[in-house]
Design a protein around this nucleic acid. Structure first.
Length: 527
DNA sequence: ATACCGTTGTACTG
DNA sequence: CAGTACAACGGTAT
């Protein structure tokens, strides 16, 4: 059938479904929806509040819903508020509705006589499923669907296709396959003088962007530290402009050299939450950086087969201690506290806690850690988060398992005084810097003076890093060896046998350290 | 088959 | 602060 003839004689109405991509600038779906309105038709900009994502879950391990921590929900609400404001300036508004998104959307399509549906393509498994349902309905109802790839610089499907149907498993091969984005030198900023108006919404229940209280978050402790990130396109673009205004900083930026303990003024752009929700377009961000590179010729440059083959522990107690920031290693616990309070940490800080949970010390499955990050980070993205956990746990992409982050010395080299720890773990704020990374080594008199008795006010280390990390290395070596021997085909039974064998030899995880040895006398090494 | 390389280790030395 | 030894993986190019 012909789309042109149907829209000629039809309503001319279009529906823009916002999920991520909460912005006006460089928004191909919004642009298409706006252009798609014909002959006095209307544009319906919609956001659906999904109770599973937004409503309090009293059984969750920390404030928030079952799927999202409070900080991310707050960020999302702020972003929606800003989007609504921007739409109103253009003569439109955001139509906020509550309910199961698929159901709500299909109902809207029916009621409002929509001929064109536009929404950004999303690779998140949750949206893959939802979008399939909505698309199926739309095609049956002869509604035109436009779902562009605009959240990411590249279409993942293109990369996989170029690689012969398989995802690349090294960063170098990914870079090579990706190349230069096709839109790299075309203008992306869309300036809308105005948007088509919103039509009659019939019997649909439209609400204002809710507050946290209206969503049922009534018991939020006030006076608690708020994350220093306000959601929304306006704030995101402001931060982007600030970041790129220092061209020398942009041109010489080297990610591994950033200071993970910097929190008063973080060492990166901190644009990740804005990119995650699409408040800032990743493509526009890319172009801004390219512009700086053009003006600064000398600049820095950028970097699945093993799933389930590593015999990870299935120990939820270890996971809980890690999640609740009670490992007894101040550097690790401070980072986990920042995760709870801010929903954001420096990427190297994320490395430290991810390594500690998985291949470095506790040997807990990376998926457990991923799920904690997925819920609590305000910038968590399903693919990036999963990929990074595979990377850090040496499950894919990265395999040098002997390179383990020390929960003591890694942080110390950036922040010898321990200011970061003092800020996020105030119980340790009076601990002398000689002991702040290893407070269990402080003499009792020092602990008393610092008003922090280890084992009472702050926990003893849950494991000895020295022996735990040795065990982890041994386990990974055994897993890799088995994997090689069996040519990558490891059965559940093989894994169980390996697990039993390793449990017999490695038991440090069950034996917390009690020694008060100082850091200087652990030099014994044998091979 | 082999050599080289890899987004971001640690600990010691001069 | 740069250079080195340590131990040593899989992917990729030749």
């Amino acid at each position: 059938m012909s789309m042109a003839s149907s829209s000629f004689s039809g309503s001319g109405n279009a529906l823009m479904w916002f999920r991520k991509g909460l912005r006006i600038h460089d928004n191909p779906a919004l642009e298409c929806a706006s252009r798609g309105v014909t002959g006095g038709g209307f544009l319906y900009p919609v956001f659906v509040i999904d109770p599973h994502y937004m409503e309090p879950d009293p059984r969750a391990s920390s404030p928030g819903s079952s799927r999202a921590g409070l900080n991310r929900i707050r960020f999302l609400l702020e972003s929606l508020k800003d989007l609504d404001l921007s739409l109103r300036k253009l003569g439109s508004r955001l139509l906020v509705m509550k309910g199961e998104p698929g159901e709500v959307l299909i109902n809207c399509l029916k009621q409002w006589n929509v001929e064109k549906l536009c929404f950004e393509y999303d690779t998140d498994p949750y949206y893959q499923q939802l979008d399939m349902r909505v698309k199926d309905y739309a095609s049956a109802a002869r509604i035109e669907v436009f779902s562009p790839v605009s959240h990411t610089l590249f279409n993942p499907a293109d990369i996989i296709q170029k690689n012969g149907g398989r995802p690349p498993v090294s960063y170098q091969s990914f870079l090579k396959l990706a190349g230069e984005p096709s839109w790299a030198s075309s203008p992306l900023m869309t300036i809308f003088p105005s948007l088509p108006s919103v039509g009659d919404v019939g019997s649909s229940q439209i609400v204002e962007v809710p507050t946290l209280e209206e969503l049922g978050y009534v018991d939020i402790e006030m006076g608690n530290e708020l994350p220093p990130f306000r959601g929304g396109e306006s704030e995101g673009l402001k931060r982007l402009r600030e970041a790129i205004s220092n061209e020398k900083w942009v041109a010489t930026f080297e990610k591994p050299k950033g200071d993970p303990s910097a929190f008063l003024r973080p060492a990166t752009t901190t644009l990740s939450p804005y990119l995650k929700f699409g408040c800032v377009s990743s493509r526009y961000f890319y172009q801004c950086i390219q512009d700086v590179y053009t003006r600064n010729k000398k600049h820095t440059s950028p970097p699945v087969s093993l799933l389930g083959q590593i015999p990870w522990n299935d120990n939820d107690e270890l996971l809980t201690v890690w999640r609740e920031a009670k490992t007894g290693y101040p550097w690790i616990d401070a980072i986990m506290t920042q995760l709870h309070k801010w929903g954001w940490m420096h990427h190297l800080a994320r490395h430290c806690v991810a390594c500690f949970l998985t291949r470095g010390d506790l040997f807990v499955h990376w998926e457990k850690g991923r799920d904690v990050f997925e819920r609590l980070l305000i910038d968590s993205d399903w693919a990036i988060n999963s990929g990074n956990w595979m990377w850090l746990s040496c499950s894919s992409f990265f395999y040098q398992y002997n390179r383990i982050y020390s929960p003591i010395s890694f942080g110390k080299k950036y922040d010898p005084n321990g200011n970061y720890i003092r800020h996020f773990l105030p119980i340790l704020k009076d601990m002398p810097k000689e002991y702040i990374y290893e407070p269990w080594t402080a003499p009792l008199s020092v602990q008393t003076k610092a008003k922090c008795i280890i084992g009472k006010d702050y926990p003893k280390p849950m494991v000895s890093h020295d022996s735990a990390s040795k065990d982890c290395k041994q386990k990974l070596a055994a897993a890799y060896e088995l994997n090689k021997k069996l040519n990558g085909v490891v059965s559940e039974e093989d894994l169980k046998v390996l697990q039993r064998k390793l449990d017999a030899t490695c038991d440090s995880v069950l034996n917390p350290v009690h020694s008060h040895s100082s850091s200087g006398d652990k030099r014994q090494r044998r091979s």
